[in-house]
Design a protein around this nucleic acid. Sequence first.
DNA 1: TAGATTGTTAATCGATTAACAATC
DNA 2: TAGATTGTTAATCGATTAACAATC
Lengths: 211, 211
Amino acid sequence: MNKIPKTVSRRLGLYHRCLKNLTSSGKRNVSSKELAEKLGIKSSQVRKDLSYFGAFGKRGVGYDTNYLLEMVERILGVNKSWSVVIIGAGNLGHALANYDVLEKNGFYIVGIFDNDPEKIGQKIGNLTIKDIKEFREFVKKNNVEIAVIAVPATSAQEVADIIVESGIKGIINFSPMTINVPKGIIIEEIDISIPFKNLTFKLTGNEFRSA
Amino acid sequence: MNKIPKTVSRRLGLYHRCLKNLTSSGKRNVSSKELAEKLGIKSSQVRKDLSYFGAFGKRGVGYDTNYLLEMVERILGVNKSWSVVIIGAGNLGHALANYDVLEKNGFYIVGIFDNDPEKIGQKIGNLTIKDIKEFREFVKKNNVEIAVIAVPATSAQEVADIIVESGIKGIINFSPMTINVPKGIIIEEIDISIPFKNLTFKLTGNEFRSA
DNA sequence: TAGATTGTTAATCGATTAACAATC
DNA sequence: TAGATTGTTAATCGATTAACAATC
């Protein structure tokens, strides 16, 4: 087994997005050069990335778009659908529950939880906000595989503990807070304010840059 | 001028977040070792990262937390506040307009735009959704510096063109779509579905991983 | 002073890219 | 076949880390 660079994972997501667009536009064949141009990378990088998982193309021809899409979906694990719950029915939780791109990629929001009595019982789309106390039982009954943390930083760790305790192995953490989980639990962090800071870092021409 | 690795920018955002927590908890001094542990990196990495911008610590002592925070804020350009507009008053635009973490970091949402007559005129917090037709004039009048794209993929490029034409130089793109802009315009991409795919990539033990 | 921790160098490690034989 | 493009190797490039003199 070849060791796969950490950077490959992110690019696989982009290949996936790109290939979905290509197949739905009816394109049957694509070269590493075309894919690379669309992503702003080198064609050798595309070929190298794919080569970690197999040989999916035809020399002299390129890649069958539908076939490559299927392979990338299997590599990413998005050839099946996933059951997702959201913890936190605030603005962000609300937006995520209604975000159609997730469902289009096979991530189905099957439940949303909060601890605010004002919110519990209210509807978001066709979901009813549930009491966090019912979390564990719900997860078991519905075979939930992924939990999304969409609560303020102050309660993020507490929520993480509840998630881990429920047996869920995959967490997406939207709170601006590092959370600690036992080995074997996989966390992806998305702090929305980080890209804003990256942007101002690049926009700012300050004394440090010219040092 | 030293060349700054691309990876440093992301970590600076994390240092910033961490230092804000430390100062508000009253901690006056911090070592590279402590910072590193909090971020799950090596202390030599912390020191190396900071060294691109100056020498902010005291040998044998560590870093004055308040001073280092101030320096990091100046490096990132978040020692001032920024005027931000959102284009797209759907779920995501709505959530971002109300997301307090942005304001806490100096990113003030000063306007939100849409092209849907149903939405135009409605209120989000104390903002009124404005017609995208008024965008250019609004940007000039209010010295807007950053625009957030929160529209569906299908209209992302169109919206990007309007933003560029308005003179704005910094864009955050939440749509799952690569957009093209002229040189000199800085874009940060956040496709929310990407971390979900990264997660399932890691959760999935498939035939490719054992190959 | 002795102990601690920085700032920086050099070594290591990992990721990208060019180049090209293989082959459609 | 001739032209095109893959898959893979080796070279290059860039980022991380260990190590340590400087110095608080």
